[in-house]
Every structure is written in C-alpha cells, then in structure tokens.
Design a protein around this nucleic acid. Structure first.
Lengths: 358, 358
DNA sequence: CTGAAAGCGCTTACAG
DNA sequence: CTGAAAGCGCTTACAG
C-alpha cells in the first residue's frame, strides 16, 4: 500500500507563490484577492489536483457539511422512499449524508445519535417512528439536548414524543380515520386490524385514529380481531395467519402499513381467501409497489419522497425558539383491494365512496 | 443558538490531573497506563460527558472510520436490499457510512467518489452497475487510482469494466442463461425481453447470457421483441406497453430486473393479458416483494443483503497486488408467473423444469 | 488586499 | 509508565 502524500494547501500556496492564507481565501471564493494571485492559486490547485482535507476544514471551522439520517431499516420501502427524498435535497445542497439503520433496535438509535453528534454533523434527521418509551425518550433527549444547545439541528419525521424536535408530521391519526371513513362508506362494519409494536407512536396514532373513527360511527372493533405483528412483510404475513387461526369475522382487514399488507395479502391468498371478494384489505403509506399488487391495494397515501425533502429542508432552516411541526397531508386512495362487503350485516346504504382528500 | 463550548481532551486531562497525552492513551485503550491514572481519566471523561472530536482524530491519525457507499437509487429495492447488508456489516465493524445516491446520473457517481476521496473515507463501495462508457471509465479510474495509491480501498458489486477494483460479481450472465434454460425447458420458444439502458454492464451481461442460451438451443430472439426501457418500475411498464403496441408474439417475457417485471405485470394486466395463462413473465434479482405478486414471479435469485455484506467485507480486507473477484451464486426460482406456453408451436417435450441451481 | 501567527482537538514519536 | 512538544491541514482574526 504505497501511501501517497496528500497535496496540501501549503503545497498549492508554495506552487503559486503566495501565503497559505491567500490560497485559502481564493479556494473559498473570497473575492477580495488580486486577480493575478487568484489565477495563480487556481492554476496551481488544478495542476496539483488539490483536494481540501475536510477534517482539517471541519476542525478549523468547527462545522462540517454533513447531516446524519437515522432510520429503522433502509431495506424497507417506506424508509427507502423517504431516504430518496433526503438524498435529493442533500445533493442539491451539497451535503454529505451519514446513514444509520437501526434494524429496529431502539438502543442503536441512541447510539447513532451519539456517534453523529460526536461527528459534529450539521443536523440529525430522525426518520423512523418515535417510541412510547419513557426511558428511551430520556436517553434520546439526553443526547439531543446538548447537541441542540451546541447549535446542532434536529428534525424528525413522525411524532417523537418526549423529544423537543422540529417535526414533519404525516397525518397518521387523521389518515387512519379518513381511511376508516372510506371503508365504512363502502359498507363495512366488521373490521380486523393488523397492528405493529404498540410502543411505536405511529402504531398508536394510526390504530387510535382508526378506532376512533369506527367508534364515532358506532362500530366497535373486537379485541380478538386486532393482531399485533412486526412492522415488516413477514410480520404482516404472520399477523394475518394468526387472525385466520383465531377465526376471521371481519369483512375488511386494515394493515397499519402497506408493507404489512403485502404479507397479509399473500397469507390470505394462501388460505384460499379472495381479496376483495371474500375480504377487503387496506394498507397505509402507498409505497410504490402496492399499485402493482393483484388486486391493487387501497391505502392512505403519504408523499414519502416529499417527506424526506421536507424534513431535510426543515433541518437546514435555523432553529426557532419553540419547535415547529409541519403537517403533511395525505389522501385515501381507493383501489380494488376493497369493495363493499359480500355479506352486509344489517347494512343501510352509505354515502358514495369517493376519494377522500385531507 | 447558544453555542456551547465542546468538552475537549484537555478538559478531561486537566480534570484528571494528567497530561493530554496520558488522557489520550487511556481513552484509546492503551494498557500501559497506571491503574489509578486510568481510573481518574475515565471518571473525568464520564463526568464531563466527553466525546472525542472525530475530525481532530482523523486529522491526527490521517484516517477516518468511514466508508462511502454509492448506488444509483436508494429508493430502488435492489439497492435498498444491498444497502441493508452493507449497513449490517458497518454496524458490526463500528464504521460510519456515507451514502451517495446518483439518481442514475453517471457523472454524479464520479462526483461522489471525488467527494468521498476528499473525505478520506477508508473505503468506497460502488454498488451500482458499471457503465460501458469509455470516457466515464476514464474519469472514474482517474479518481480511483490516486485514491487507491494513497491506500484507499475500493470494492464494487457487479462488473465495472475499465476499473481495477475488487468485485463481488453476481452471476448475471450465467444466471440469465440458467433462467433461459428453465424457460426453454418449460416449452417456450418465443421470447420477448424488456431490457434496460444498453450502457449498463448489468444489461449487457444479462441480455447476453439470455440470448446466448437461446441461441445454443437454436432459438432466436426477434429484434422487435426486445424493448428497452429505464431500469425502473415505470420503465418496465412502458417497455411492456410498447411491446404490446408492436404486437406481442412471444409466449414468455423476460424483464431484466424484477423492478421492471413489476411494472410489466401491471401493463400486461391492464391490457387484459393473464399471466401466465396468456403469457409467462420472468424477472431477475428476487427482490423481497415479488413473492407477493399475483402470480408470484419467476426470477433468478440474488442474495441481495449478502451481496452488501460481502462487498463491505471485501473492502475491509487489505488490498492485494491484483484485484480480486468473488463470484456470487444465485438460483433460478420458478414460481407461478411462468407456465408452459398456451400454444406450443411445434413443440417437443423438454426435460422437466426443476429448480436449477447454479 | 496580503501574510505571519495562532488555533481548531487530537495523536504520537521522542525524551525522560 | 508519563509528559512536553510537534504536527496533522486548514481558517481567521490581527496587523500591516
């Protein structure tokens, strides 16, 4: 490994016959430098293929052009979609992105924040759901507070209880309620829900919104028709399987995420149930793939890439006295995976099911 | 923004009543330090919540614990899957990952390498397909060579022509050939191919392998049955639509990636064609979702996450005199999207279609 | 406008 | 085993 000495600012300065200070100024776009000096510096830098050492720069400037992005699983289409938006804005702004993927272990999230804080990133983006977990919130806030106090920026997607951070808040509660409304309008009265870990704020919000809307319509959700699974494709598959084992009494199944719905669809199919003929199925998020399922999935659309762009944009804005919340609208998208129930139980006509915008 | 002064090594040393050198040694796990001093340092560091400044460290050590990872689109399940594997190994090794997503603009790939090189990352991982593009290869090699000469490590997934880099090589050519064999064994003689940009080495390899295998079986592929599209879901949708516009004469359609196959499946369905009753469809990669399609997709499975782990592992090994290539096996996975042709044209029985392993 | 000098926070030979 | 000192490569007041 023939370690090659790196070309340094001093080399450039020397080659150009100026001081390092002047070379630095030129290379940083200072305009108050004599034209001929500037040219010599630029020429020398080009000839020597000079690349500034970002660590030296970060050290001297006490700031770096990097942002940290933490998600639960970069292999998950939901996070991949948001990350895509983040990368877009990062590229436009010339920022580096340091990625953290926790594999859904929440302690790793704290560890990543600690690492990125040490790294002196300009901003930290939390794009995974928050946790309803007091000790975790304490630990996280313990990392975040000093970082923010030192001038760091933090922005999150979804509700992060207990953390004082700027937030891009997708309409989880309202969206689930709107979806419930649309499914009720279709004539459903018997629902099952495939839910995720109860400690996720996203689960709380979506499940809460859905249940509330049902309750307001006088519809109750039987406890045994709520099945918890992992927030993954396999989690959806297994939750649906468990639901069938318990005995499916619902005419419509709501999976809290599209990813879970995808697994559920296969489980239903494997058990000989046709969607929507035998049972309707709805998801949440509108990840890219669900329009290609058979049948295409009814869902609540979240603009994933836009979520990513927004959270990045928010992090790049200066901090305010109190943390801000940007609500992001979504919309119910009715597709073929939902239809009026085959066996409406004492059902009276409902208003037509249109696309309900929020 | 009340900029808080950061706790420095000197603070720790002072609090512990030792020199910065000693504090540094303790914090870096040196064993040859008197126990009581070590304890005092550790205590002070803990009490002050000291975090070393990685930039200072990188500057002093002339190396940083970061690796750069460049893909074409982090929103694409293929790359998201590989990235997942990369993140796994990175976490295990305590490495930071700087992510680059080029949005399929090849110049951005060079720009990212340049940036990461400047960043003094330990290694650069190219996980996107290579390009059959001489000027691009020159530009890329121009960035890579000095980086490597300076001790940097580079590893790639897929064939990167013109770049002297260690490679994790999925069996694109052999895989496509094996898939062709399996489809021939099913009785197909009339094929169509939905291909991607011809400048991608992955396209060249998969298309070449597929065609070759057909040729060896005495089957030719009509030029008008080969349609090029973008390497995306929409590219697959559009290519399939164009194929139908031209007149589908094939009994089996091969999409060069699962992502394209997903779009193609929807296009076929929208045009009233049943898969596999009217036409068989096969993809490549075995991204997580395709098992949940209706019908589940026949494909050539690549162990995506493993690809990511391997390329990372390779980059962490010391460089060798000549670049290495790790071939990664895959396997044909026959699912319900392929079946014997509905109208076998002068067809003689073929050997039974089993799962053909490579 | 330009340069000498100090400083960013850490590591590591080099003496003791 | 421990510490004083130099150095990593850059930036930025501070003088001129």
């Amino acid at each position: 490994m023939p370690e090659q000495p790196q070309v340094t600012l001093d080399d450039v300065a020397q080659a150009a016959g100026v001081s390092p200070a002047t070379a630095s100024r030129v290379l940083n776009g200072a305009t108050q430098v004599r034209a001929d000096l500037r040219d010599r510096v630029l020429e020398a830098a080009g000839r020597l293929a000079y690349t500034p050492n970002p660590h030296a720069r970060a050290l001297a400037r006490a700031s770096s052009p990097a942002v940290g992005v933490i998600c639960h699983d970069i292999g998950d289409p939901y996070f991949a979609g948001i990350a895509r938006g983040v990368m877009r804005t990062a590229a436009e702004e010339g920022l580096q992105v340091i990625l953290g993927s926790t594999f859904r272990e929440r302690e790793r999230e704290v560890a990543y924040v600690s690492m990125m804080r040490g790294q002196r990133v300009r901003a930290i983006l939390l794009i995974g759901s928050g946790f309803e977990d007091r000790p975790w919130q304490k630990a996280m806030q313990g990392e975040l507070a000093p970082y923010i106090a030192a001038g760091g920026r933090v922005a999150a997607v979804s509700r992060h209880q207990g953390l004082r951070v700027d937030t891009v808040l997708p309409e989880n509660r309202e969206g689930a309620a709107a979806l419930a409304g649309a499914l009720l309008a279709l004539g459903h009265r018997d629902f099952a829900v495939l839910t995720g870990p109860a400690s996720l704020t996203t689960v709380v919000d979506r499940l809460g919104g859905f249940k509330n809307a049902l309750a307001e319509a006088g519809v109750t959700l039987a406890p045994d028709q709520i099945v918890e699974g992992a927030f993954t494709r396999d989690g959806g598959y297994e939750a649906a399987t468990e639901l069938l084992r318990r005995g499916l009494r619902a005419t419509c199944v709501f999976a809290l995420t599209d990813v879970m719905a995808v697994g559920a669809l296969t489980a239903l199919r494997e058990h000989g149930l046709a969607v929507p003929a035998d049972v309707s199925l709805a998801g949440f998020d509108d990840i890219p793939i669900v329009v290609d399922l058979t049948p295409p999935l009814t869902t609540f659309r979240l603009p994933l890439e836009d979520l990513g762009r927004r959270v990045m944009a928010m992090a790049l804005q200066p901090a305010r006295a109190r943390s801000r919340t940007d609500r992001v609208l979504g919309e119910v998208v009715l597709r073929e995976s939902t239809a009026p129930p085959a066996r409406p139980a004492g059902w009276s006509p409902a208003p037509p099911a249109e696309r309900i915008s929020q």
